[in-house]
Design a protein around this nucleic acid. Structure first.
Lengths: 180, 180
DNA sequence: GTCTATACTAAGATAGAC
DNA sequence: GTCTATCTTAGTATAGAC
C-alpha cells in the first residue's frame, strides 16, 4: 500500500500531455519537466534517463489496462456496445495513456508495442464470446481502432468522428451485423 | 514536363522510411541524408530547412492523393470493396506517404493534418453514393482507418489484421451491412 | 526529494570549396 | 548540385548543494 510519489505521477501526466499534443519530438526531458513544474534534475531523480521515463509510462498502461478489461467484460449494456462507446469517448486517463504509449510505439519502442499488443489481445478475448464469428470480431476491433485514430491519434482535427446520435446509429449497425 | 530532380525524391523516400520505421524523433536531417546517400549539405540544397522537408513530403501526398481518389471512384469491383482492400494492403508508395505524413501530423504539423483531412473528405465523397446511409459511410471510413493503424501505423507488430480469406469475409460483411 | 550548475553529444543551419 | 567544415542551440546526463 505504499502511496506512490505525487511528483512521479505529475511527471507522467506531463509526459502524456506533450506526447499527445505535440508528439514524441517535442517530449524532451526539459519540456516534460517544465510542464510538470519540476526541474530537470528533479525529473531525473524519479526517472534516471529518457528510457526510464518511457518505461514508466508503459508500466502505467499495463496497470490501467487490467482495470479496463475487467470493466468491458462486466458492462451491463454488453461488451460490444461498451467497448465501441468508450473507444469514441476519448479523454479518460486510460485513453490518454493508450494514445501516448502509441506515440512511443511509433517511435520504435518495443516494450510500448508489446504492451499495446497485449491490451488488444485482452480486448479480443473479452469481445469474442459476444459476436457471431471471426469477421465480426475483426470488425469490432478495427472499428474501435478507427474511432481512436480519429478521436485522438491524428490530433482531433481530421475526423468527422461520429458522436451522439450518429455514434449510436453506428453502434446499432455493428451490433446487428455481428450479434451472435 | 520538367523532370523532377532525382536526388530530391531520394531524400523524400529516405525521409518516409525513417518516419515509418523509427518515428519522427529519429528522422533527423543527418539520418535522412545518410539514408538517402547524400550529405547534410546536399540535402539542405534541396530542402533549405527541416520545415521545408516536411512541406515537401506533404506536397508529395497531395499529388498522389488526386490519383488515388480517381482510382477509387473508377474501380470496377465497386468503390467500397476497392477502398477497404487497398486500406489493408499497405506497402504501396501512396500508403507509405500517408503513413509518414500521419507521423508529421502527430508531431503537430498543421499542413500535414490539413492534407490528411482533405484526403479523407475526398474519400468520403467517393464512397457516399455507394452506401445506404451516414452510419454506413462512417463504418466504412473508420474501418479503413482501423486497417491502416494496424497494418502500418503501429509498426506492423500488434495487429491480427485480417488478410486473405479473413479480409474477404470482413469486406463481404461490411458490404452487406452497408449496401444501398 | 528537489534544486542549480555544468559537461557532453546531437540537431539544425550556414559558408565556402569543388 | 554536392561536399566538408564550422557555428549555435537544444537534449541528455552527472555532480553536488540544500
Amino acid at each position: 500500500m505504499s502511496r506512490p510519489p505525487r511528483a512521479r505521477d505529475k511527471v507522467l501526466d506531463a509526459f502524456e500531455s506533450i506526447l499527445i499534443e505535440d508528439g514524441e519530438r517535442a517530449a524532451t526531458l526539459d519540456a516534460v519537466a517544465r510542464r510538470a513544474g519540476v526541474s530537470k534534475g528533479g525529473l531525473l531523480y524519479h526517472f534516471g534517463s529518457r528510457d526510464a521515463l518511457d518505461a514508466g509510462l508503459v508500466e502505467r498502461l499495463r496497470l490501467l489496462a487490467a482495470d479496463d478489461v475487467a470493466a468491458t467484460q462486466g458492462a451491463p449494456e454488453g461488451p460490444v456496445g461498451y467497448f465501441l462507446a468508450t473507444s469514441a469517448h476519448v479523454g479518460s486517463p486510460f485513453d490518454r495513456t493508450i494514445v501516448s504509449v502509441s506515440r512511443l510505439a511509433n517511435g520504435g519502442n518495443a516494450t510500448a508495442t508489446a504492451a499495446l499488443t497485449e491490451l488488444r489481445r485482452a480486448w479480443a478475448d473479452a469481445i469474442r464470446p459476444h459476436v457471431r464469428d471471426d469477421a465480426s470480431l475483426d470488425l469490432v476491433l478495427l472499428l474501435s481502432d478507427g474511432l481512436y485514430i480519429n478521436s485522438a491519434l491524428l490530433n482531433d482535427v481530421p475526423g468527422p468522428v461520429p458522436t451522439g446520435d450518429a455514434l449510436d446509429a453506428l453502434i446499432r449497425l455493428v451490433e446487428s451485423a455481428t450479434r451472435t
